[in-house]
Design a protein around this nucleic acid. Structure first.
Lengths: 139, 139
DNA sequence: CTACTTTAATCAGAGCATCTGACTAAAACA
DNA sequence: TGTTTTAGTCAGATGCTCTGATTAAAGTAG
């Protein structure tokens, strides 16, 4: 079986379940918004960087950040080092979703570990982290 | 780092590169169409099954199959065992894209194997195949 | 310092993908 | 036979993403 699909299926499972858990906890957010939000760094991140990291155009990133801003999950502040740019920053409201997401993630990992075993789980993570070195544009 | 993202990044890499290779070979197809097309079985598959496998609604699957049909990549034939249903079948034209996709897939796997090693690659595949047992709705 | 080029972001407009709800026709079942 | 379920379609709306053009600030070469 095709390794692309093998990767895609559990990746979608994680996305769907975490999103569902976050929404169930009362947050209103979409998957596209979450993908961008996830990439906002602790000191704020420029729109252009977000777009690169999330692999979408600046326009798309801007569109999603607009919505995240309206919903109160991020704010835009001027970038002190560059008058053209603004920094997107995560708000306290959005930070409240982090433990919810982490809890669901832990639940998923526990289920997976139960099914494939601790050793294989560690091997999986190791292989994926190494793959990230050559496939993640944001490093 | 979050295992959802770790899975997502290489999965997107595979999707993007295979799609790009297929398009470069002269086929006109989108990623959404390809995801459905990939799930069509050798004896034909019902729309409802395709929708389940690809995790979209019947309407969305129907929309995409319409386009695949117009482009000549699938055909709809009556299901002899059920008058309500029709079977979606891959045409010869679409089958011509298979070697192109396989070649790109082989190229990607070779690159990955070079980076993480043959052993880890085998472990990765094993772990993912087992995960598929609990995350793939289409088995 | 000025003129040119590059970069960060936004505006405008379009297309594709996806959904919910309502419907038709055939099949299954009681 | 009549009711319920299933396969698929129709209609309408929303969301996400793109290309192309524009504005303003920054960087750079003379």
């Amino acid at each position: 079986m095709n390794i692309g699909l093998l990767l895609f299926i559990p990746s979608r499972e994680v996305e769907n379940r975490i999103l569902a858990a976050v929404i169930a906890a009362g947050f209103e957010i979409t998957q596209a918004q979450a993908r961008v939000l996830m990439r906002v760094g602790s000191d704020g991140t420029r729109l252009t960087e977000l777009a690169e990291a999330a692999q979408v155009t600046k326009q798309t990133a801007g569109f999603l950040v607009d919505q995240l801003e309206k919903a109160g999950y991020v704010e835009r502040v001027p970038d002190p080092t560059d008058g053209r740019a603004r920094l997107v920053r995560v708000t306290d409201k959005a930070k409240e979703a982090v433990p919810v997401a982490n809890a669901e993630m832990a639940r998923i990992e526990a289920e997976w570990e139960q099914h494939i075993g601790k050793r294989r789980m560690a091997q999986l993570r190791e292989a994926l982290e190494m793959l990230g070195e050559i496939t993640d544009p944001y490093r």
